[in-house]
Amino acid sequence: MPGRGGRIFGKRGINELGDESGDINEPVDGKSIKSAIPLGLLSEGEEGIIIAHRCGRGLRRRLLELGFTPSSRVRVVSSFPGLIVDIKGSRIALGRGVAMKIIVSLNSGGGKDDN
Protein backbone atom coordinates (compact mmCIF):
# COMPACT_ATOMS: atom_id res chain seq x y z
CA MET A 1 0.00 0.00 0.00
CA PRO A 2 1.48 3.31 -0.94
CA GLY A 3 1.68 6.13 1.54
CA ARG A 4 1.35 5.30 5.19
CA GLY A 5 1.66 1.56 4.62
CA GLY A 6 5.19 2.29 3.45
CA ARG A 7 6.48 2.11 6.98
CA ILE A 8 5.64 -1.54 7.12
CA PHE A 9 6.97 -2.57 3.74
CA GLY A 10 9.41 0.26 3.09
CA LYS A 11 12.69 -0.99 4.48
CA ARG A 12 12.16 -4.67 3.84
CA GLY A 13 14.53 -6.12 1.34
CA ILE A 14 13.46 -8.21 -1.56
CA ASN A 15 14.82 -11.36 0.08
CA GLU A 16 12.30 -11.15 2.81
CA LEU A 17 9.37 -11.45 0.46
CA GLY A 18 9.26 -15.18 0.93
CA ASP A 19 9.03 -14.88 4.67
CA GLU A 20 5.63 -16.15 5.73
CA SER A 21 6.46 -16.49 9.39
CA GLY A 22 4.36 -14.70 11.96
CA ASP A 23 6.77 -12.03 13.01
CA ILE A 24 5.76 -9.35 15.44
CA ASN A 25 5.95 -5.94 13.88
CA GLU A 26 7.86 -3.18 15.47
CA PRO A 27 5.50 -0.65 16.97
CA VAL A 28 5.08 2.29 14.64
CA ASP A 29 6.66 5.65 15.26
CA GLY A 30 8.82 4.17 18.01
CA LYS A 31 6.47 5.61 20.61
CA SER A 32 6.35 3.93 23.94
CA ILE A 33 3.18 1.97 24.37
CA LYS A 34 1.35 2.41 27.62
CA SER A 35 -1.50 0.01 27.12
CA ALA A 36 -1.18 -2.23 24.12
CA ILE A 37 -3.96 -4.78 23.90
CA PRO A 38 -5.55 -6.89 21.18
CA LEU A 39 -8.51 -5.25 19.45
CA GLY A 40 -10.47 -8.39 20.25
CA LEU A 41 -10.44 -7.49 23.94
CA LEU A 42 -12.04 -4.07 23.57
CA SER A 43 -15.66 -3.74 24.64
CA GLU A 44 -18.47 -2.17 22.73
CA GLY A 45 -17.96 1.55 22.20
CA GLU A 46 -14.25 1.47 23.07
CA GLU A 47 -11.66 2.96 20.73
CA GLY A 48 -8.03 2.25 20.07
CA ILE A 49 -5.18 3.31 17.81
CA ILE A 50 -3.66 0.54 15.71
CA ILE A 51 -0.01 0.04 16.57
CA ALA A 52 0.87 -3.40 15.20
CA HIS A 53 -0.35 -6.48 13.42
CA ARG A 54 0.75 -9.69 15.08
CA CYS A 55 0.45 -12.02 12.11
CA GLY A 56 2.05 -13.20 8.90
CA ARG A 57 2.32 -11.06 5.82
CA GLY A 58 -0.71 -12.52 4.02
CA LEU A 59 -3.15 -11.50 6.71
CA ARG A 60 -1.31 -8.25 7.34
CA ARG A 61 -1.68 -7.30 3.71
CA ARG A 62 -5.39 -8.03 3.81
CA LEU A 63 -5.80 -5.96 6.97
CA LEU A 64 -3.97 -3.03 5.37
CA GLU A 65 -6.23 -3.24 2.33
CA LEU A 66 -9.27 -3.11 4.55
CA GLY A 67 -7.95 0.08 6.14
CA PHE A 68 -6.34 -1.29 9.33
CA THR A 69 -3.25 0.83 8.76
CA PRO A 70 -0.89 1.83 11.57
CA SER A 71 -2.02 4.90 13.53
CA SER A 72 -5.64 4.53 12.42
CA ARG A 73 -8.39 4.90 14.94
CA VAL A 74 -10.66 1.88 15.29
CA ARG A 75 -13.87 1.66 17.30
CA VAL A 76 -15.81 -1.41 18.38
CA VAL A 77 -19.38 -0.96 17.20
CA SER A 78 -20.66 -4.26 18.55
CA SER A 79 -18.95 -7.27 19.98
CA PHE A 80 -21.67 -9.87 20.18
CA PRO A 81 -22.41 -12.21 18.47
CA GLY A 82 -19.68 -11.12 16.04
CA LEU A 83 -17.23 -8.27 16.22
CA ILE A 84 -18.07 -5.22 14.09
CA VAL A 85 -15.64 -2.33 14.03
CA ASP A 86 -15.65 1.10 12.50
CA ILE A 87 -12.45 1.93 10.66
CA LYS A 88 -11.96 4.86 8.27
CA GLY A 89 -15.70 5.37 8.03
CA SER A 90 -16.59 1.77 7.13
CA ARG A 91 -18.03 -0.97 9.29
CA ILE A 92 -16.10 -4.19 8.99
CA ALA A 93 -16.91 -7.55 10.54
CA LEU A 94 -13.90 -9.36 12.00
CA GLY A 95 -13.41 -12.87 13.24
CA ARG A 96 -12.40 -13.01 16.90
CA GLY A 97 -9.11 -14.69 16.00
CA VAL A 98 -8.18 -11.95 13.56
CA ALA A 99 -9.19 -9.24 16.03
CA MET A 100 -6.76 -10.75 18.56
CA LYS A 101 -3.92 -10.19 16.08
CA ILE A 102 -4.51 -6.46 15.75
CA ILE A 103 -2.76 -4.66 18.57
CA VAL A 104 -4.13 -1.30 19.61
CA SER A 105 -3.16 1.34 22.09
CA LEU A 106 -5.83 2.73 24.36
CA ASN A 107 -3.99 6.03 24.69
CA SER A 108 -6.45 8.63 23.54
CA GLY A 109 -5.32 11.29 21.11
CA GLY A 110 -2.71 11.16 18.41
CA GLY A 111 -4.66 8.79 16.21
CA LYS A 112 -5.28 9.48 12.61
CA ASP A 113 -8.92 9.52 11.68
CA ASP A 114 -10.09 10.71 8.31
CA ASN A 115 -13.52 11.86 9.31
Binding site: M1, G67, D114, N115
Partner: peptide, 14 residues
Protein backbone atom coordinates in the same frame (compact mmCIF):
# COMPACT_ATOMS: atom_id res chain seq x y z
CA UNK B 1 -15.71 7.53 -4.74
CA UNK B 2 -17.63 8.44 -1.59
CA UNK B 3 -16.71 12.09 -1.14
CA UNK B 4 -17.58 11.87 2.54
CA UNK B 5 -15.00 9.09 3.07
CA UNK B 6 -12.29 9.91 0.60
CA UNK B 7 -9.12 8.52 2.21
CA UNK B 8 -10.39 4.96 2.28
CA UNK B 9 -11.91 5.23 -1.19
CA UNK B 10 -8.81 6.56 -2.93
CA UNK B 11 -6.89 3.35 -2.19
CA UNK B 12 -8.95 1.51 -4.80
CA UNK B 13 -8.48 4.48 -7.14
CA UNK B 14 -4.70 4.06 -6.89
Amino acid sequence: VDASNIERNLYLTL
